[in-house]
Write a protein that binds this DNA or RNA. Sequence first.
DNA 1: ATGAAAGCGCTAACAC
DNA 2: GTGTTAGCGCTTTCAT
Lengths: 341, 341
Amino acid sequence: MADGASDHTQSRVTIRTVATDAGVSVAAVSKVMRNAYGVSDALRQKVEASIEKLGYRPSVAARGMRGRTFTLGVLLVGIDNPFLPGIYQGIESVTEAAGYKIMVCVGAARAQTEAQLIEQMIDNRMDGLILVASQIAGDTLEHYARQIPIVVVGHHETSAVGYDTINNDDQRGAARVVQAFVDQGYRDIAFLTQFEPDDHPADVSPQRELGYLDAMRAAGLADHIRILRLPQSNAPREQDFHQLLTSPDRPRAVFCWSDLDAIPLLGAAFRLGIRVPQDLAIVGYDNSPVAALPMVALSSVDQDGPHLGRLSAEALFSRMNGRKVAEHIQIEPRLIKRGSL
Amino acid sequence: MADGASDHTQSRVTIRTVATDAGVSVAAVSKVMRNAYGVSDALRQKVEASIEKLGYRPSVAARGMRGRTFTLGVLLVGIDNPFLPGIYQGIESVTEAAGYKIMVCVGAARAQTEAQLIEQMIDNRMDGLILVASQIAGDTLEHYARQIPIVVVGHHETSAVGYDTINNDDQRGAARVVQAFVDQGYRDIAFLTQFEPDDHPADVSPQRELGYLDAMRAAGLADHIRILRLPQSNAPREQDFHQLLTSPDRPRAVFCWSDLDAIPLLGAAFRLGIRVPQDLAIVGYDNSPVAALPMVALSSVDQDGPHLGRLSAEALFSRMNGRKVAEHIQIEPRLIKRGSL
DNA sequence: ATGAAAGCGCTAACAC
DNA sequence: GTGTTAGCGCTTTCAT
C-alpha cells in the first residue's frame, strides 16, 4: 500500500534559498530564526524580508535532527472523554503563549498502545511530553523520562522521581462526595467503578475508591461500604445497569468513579422509572457538560481541567529548563451539586 | 522560556549501532527495515536480531528528511465535537492495518489557525493529511494540496481538483428531516444555524440549509420557511435560546444544524417547561451519544462517522499511491427517530 | 547481494 | 558580526 508515487514536487523553500536570496550565509538565517546572539539589525532585516517574501518555514523534521522542534507532544487516553477538552485547552493556552506547537496522539487506554505512542512522539523529536490519564506503569514512565521531559496528568505516581505529576486530589474529591451524601442523611452509599485497584493503583478510580473507603469509615459507615465493580469496558453497559437497578438490594446512593458511567446509569434509572434522587441518588466525577443539562442535572466533582492543563504545561517548561527534582502537585476538587443528590 | 538544559542524554540507538552490532552496512539495515528489494535471508535475520536485541526504533524525523515518515496527519476542528470520535476511529482502523501512525492537530474552527496547523504537519513531514470539518477556503486547500496529499471530510468542495472530499449528503439529510416533520403534520418548521451561507458555502451547515430550503419548497411550504441564525459562538447560548423559546412566534418545529445546538435548545425547553414534542418538536444532526440518552431522546441525523473515516483514509492511500483525479464521495445519512419529533 | 557515500535541511562550533 | 563546516540519522543511487 501507498508507494508515494505522487509528484508533490513543489520544490520547497529551504534555509539555503533564503540565504541566497538575502545574500547572507545559512548560519546567519539560522541565527535570525532562533533569535541567537550576534546578529546586526541590518542583517536581521534583510533575512526577515527574504523569509517573508519567500514564505519560508523551517522544516521541523530537520530541526529535530540537531536542535529543538518547539513542538510538544500530548498523549490523550481517548477522544471522547469529557475530562480531556478542558485539560487540552489549559495546556494550549500556555504553550501557545510560549510559541510552542502541540501534536496530539490518541491512545486507547491500553498500556501497550500508549507506550508505542510515546515512542512515536520521541521518534518525532518532540521537545517534551504531557501524558493525560495514561495507564502506563510508573517504572515504564521512568524509563521514557530518561529520554524526554515528561509530565503526567490524571495519574498518581507520587513517588515518581524522573517526571512530574499534576492531579486533582481524587481522594479528597471522593471524600467530599461521601460527606455530601452523609449530610443529606444517606447511609447506604455504594461506589461504582470498573477498575481493580490492584492492577492500577495509581489510576484515578482506585484513588477515588480509597477516598470513598476512608470517608465511609470516618463517618462510621464501615458496615455500609459497598463496591460495585463492573467489568472494564468502553461498550455501553445497559445490561449491567439494568441488573443493578432492578436488583432487590439496590443501593440508596451511588457514587460513580466518572460521569462516563454516571450518566448512562442515570439514563437506565430514567428508563426504569426510578426517581432521582427520591429513589436513588447519584453523584459522578468530572463535571462533564452533559451533567449540567437540566434534564440530566447530575451532581459531579469538578477537577478544573483548564487549571490542570496550565499547571502541567508550566511544569513541563520548567523541567525543560533544567529542573531535575520531581514535582507532584494536587489541586482541590469541587463538588457541583445538582438535582441528582 | 525553556532552554532545554536538561540532560536527556541517554545515547540513542541509531541505524549505525544496529549495523555495527549485526556486522553489516548501514544501507543493509535500512533496506531490511523498508522491506526493500535485494536482501538475503541470512542478512535479514542478523539485522532483525540486532534490532530486536537493541530495541532499535528508526527516527521519524530523520526518515522524513529523505523518505517517508509513515505518519499521517489528522486535523480536527476541535476536541469536544460529537462528530469527531467516530470519524477518528474509522480513520485509525484502516491506517493501523496499513502500518501507518497518526498525529493529530486540534484546530479552533478558525481558518487561520487551521492553516498554520496544516503547515505544521507539512513541516513535520507527514505523508498525507486528512482534514476533518476544516473551514479553510477551497483555493487555499488547493495550494496545500500541491505540497502534500490531502483528503477533506465534512466540507463540500465538490469542484476541488487537487484533493478529495468525503461527506455524508447533507442536503439529503436535511430533506429527510423536513420530510419526517411534514409526515407528522408539521408545517411551521424552522431551521436553526449559526453560519452564514455566503461566508462558507462549502460548510456542512449551509448545505443543510440548502437541503432544508429545497425540501420546504418541494413540500409546498415555501411560506413557512424560516431561518433562525444565531451569532456564531462556542459559548453556551442560554440567553439566545431562552429568548427564542419565550417569543410569541415560537416555531412549532425546529431543525438544528447540529446536536451541538439542538441539545442545549432541548435543555432550555426543558427548563422552561415546554413539552417536547407536544409543544415543540426538535431534530438535530450528528446523532451524538447524548442524543440517545433516554432523558434526552433527541431525534437526529446519523452520518456514520466510522464509515466516513474509513473512506477518507482509503482515499488518502489511493491518492498517495498516485491517483491524480479528485474523488468526491457522498454517503447516505440516516434519520434516527426518538422522542423529540 | 552488499556497501560506500552523497545528500535531506537544519543547528552549533569554530574560524575569520 | 558573519561565514564555514561538521554533523544529526536516515534513504538512495551507484559501485562492487
